[in-house]
């Protein structure tokens, strides 16, 4: 008699949150490790992306009440805000170059 087969490989909310934690930690490491402040600025998009992945994962797996795509919306706004912050930071760094 054939028993139940092995479980299919599947990603769940815990896996998504693990990946999000890795991205946030990589961003913090980037911001802390670089001696060059403009290079350390690259940690901001990484951290924002980690938060965005967590929000999108919540929206995909665990959004029970309220608008279901709220997490996706917040992830999108985080990506846009990260780009704006990088543009501002590198613009200020470019200005400092002439001094």
């Amino acid at each position: 008699m054939a028993g139940p087969g092995p479980d299919a490989v599947s990603a769940d909310l815990v896996g998504v949150l693990f990946v999000a934690a890795g991205l946030v930690a990589a961003g913090v490491f980037t911001a802390a490790w670089h001696r060059d402040l403009t290079a350390a600025l690259a940690g901001i998009p990484l951290m924002f992306a980690g938060a965005g992945v967590a929000f999108a994962g919540i929206a995909r797996f665990a959004a029970a009440g309220g608008p279901q795509l709220l997490g996706q919306e917040f992830a999108m706004l985080l990506a846009i805000a990260a780009t704006a912050l990088v543009a501002l930071g590198l613009g200020i760094a470019g200005r400092e170059r002439s001094r």
Partner: peptide, 27 residues
Amino acid sequence: YAAVVALICYAGCALMFASPQYRRVDA
């Protein structure tokens, strides 16, 4: 849709970081 927006935003960030126009600011 969030994937498309993130791809555009992070491509812009990558272009800005790869640019030689800003100087090094030491901490």
